[in-house]
Amino acid sequence: MGNNIIEINHLSFRYRHSEELALKNVNLHVPYGQWVAVTGHNGSGKSTLARFLNALLIPDAEGAVIIGGLNTKTEGCRQEIRRKAAMVFQNPDNQMVAPTVEDDVAFGLENAGVPYEEMVIRVQESIDKLGLTGLEKREPHRLSGGQKQRAAIAGAVAMKPELLILDEATSMLDPSGRAEVIDQVQKLRDSENMTILTITHDLNEAALADRIVVMREGEIIGDGTPAQIFRQEDLLKEASLKKPFIIELIASLREKEVDIPEEVTTEEELVNHLCRLKQTM
């Protein structure tokens, strides 16, 4: 039990004024250091799930959400849970509170009552870590979408969280902004060994994670490594998700009786494999 940062047990949830359940008996355990991508089409319940992880929503009687050993039901734990599980949201314009990058990065630290001297160091560290050096005094409306989201991540990282939750943080960005953010997330994972949970409907992005959880109508309908998930045609169709191009290409080539082994899953590997095939022909 102690090895899991996220423990979700029997979590069901219905929004007020809604007839359908937004979450149906969700069970999910995530060990420390893992990168999990939760995917599903819009309205599949994935963002609702994320809100339980840092106590923005609280389970009712039956279900339980335990983050780093702390139950979100215990009122006294919630501030600590939010410190452990930092969250970055979808809309870059609606989550920057302060008028400049550095002030915004400091916001969470101010709330936590971190002393001034330490705060200055941690703010600068996070800004540097996310490649925002030089933009400390910029106002939000003079930043690109990618920069705004990186600032939001810097604000989260400054809290030294154990879990970083990205709730569709790239879905409103242009391709270069998306690449910037994903690049930084990968770096964080490598250098900080942080547990990362990304919510996304982009399977190209999900493919970078260690594990993909597929949701549909509030239920988890698939859970496995990217390779395992991509192999399940019906599952993806059921979840209305679009496979990465390369996975689709491999499947179509197999249909044409081109021999491609299981372990080939990336562009690089497929190019190499096809070249080898060509030579042996």
Binding site: F245, S252, V258
Partner: peptide
């Protein structure tokens, strides 16, 4: 298109 790409690869393998 996916299918055109597949055909191109198939003909690439078949050539020679």
């Amino acid at each position: 298109r996916l299918q055109d790409t597949v055909n191109e690869i198939v003909s690439f393998l078949g050539k020679d």
